[in-house]
């Protein structure tokens, strides 16, 4: 039964047909599939399959990538309240766009993937100052700061990631809080993330979520010697 559901769901997601995907999920729940199974056995594998398909398919497009992530987010958000036990949370991330940058779409997609993978995300919004990133990460005890920058001058500029890194060092937080960046400029220059002082970068939502989960584990390992 689950195989049928997985197949129909994958087809709907591949066609970016949101209504069809939601219908498959409703049908699955009616047939007794649990919300946990929907998320862990249907939604997450589907988004992983989609991302690897998109990465290797010359015909795949950004629009499809966006729509796929949106469907995953929507389904996950609908399922979470139906979980029998509150899911085990991997860790916590604060996320926002760099100072001077108002492009929120990339951040939104990363947030969706993180939620689907049981990471708590706090959205700091757009045009976030370095101080605010750090203050909120400390206040909320987040393991990772995620900074999205879609323009060259916000990705490379002094007010963005570089400043967050400098403040983390000044305050001795480099082991407690890791720094991840994403956005078009980092894709064009895969070494840029290091130049601006980030610990990692990722090129799409699902990989961002994976990279962030790795860093959360690293921080937690460090915390519990």
């Amino acid at each position: 039964m689950l195989d049928d559901i997985i197949q129909s769901y994958n087809e709907a997601v591949f066609e970016t047909d949101r209504m069809a995907a939601l219908n498959v999920v409703d049908r699955a729940l009616a047939q007794g599939v649990t919300a946990e199974e929907v998320v862990f056995k249907v939604v997450i594998p589907a988004i992983e399959t989609m991302m690897s398909l998109i990465a290797s398919d010359p015909d795949a497009n950004l629009a499809q990538h966006f729509m796929t992530s949106q469907i995953a987010v929507e389904v996950t958000e609908k399922m979470l309240p139906k979980f029998r036990n509150s899911p085990e949370v991997v860790g916590r991330v604060v996320i926002g766009t760099a100072h001077g940058d108002l492009h929120s779409l990339g951040k939104r997609i990363v947030m969706g993937c993180l939620k689907a993978m049981m990471v708590e995300v706090v959205d700091l919004g757009v045009n976030v100052s370095a101080e605010h990133f750090i203050d909120e990460a400390v206040r909320l005890d987040a393991q990772v700061i995620g900074i999205s920058a879609m323009m060259v001058h916000t990705a490379m500029g002094e007010e963005g990631c570089r400043k967050v890194r400098a403040r983390l060092q000044e305050r001795g937080l480099t082991d407690r809080i890791k720094l991840v960046v994403g956005g078009a400029p980092y894709r064009f220059d895969p070494n840029l993330y290091q130049a601006v002082g980030a610990d990692a970068w990722a090129e799409d939502g699902i990989n961002a979520a994976k990279v962030i989960i790795e860093l959360i584990r690293e921080v937690k390992r460090h915390d519990t010697p």
Binding site: F14, E15, T16, D17, P58, D59, A60, N61, A63, Q64
Partner: peptide, 13 residues
Amino acid sequence: LKPSGRFTVPPGT
């Protein structure tokens, strides 16, 4: 072409 923006039969690059 499908509403997703994909071609029914991929035409290649």
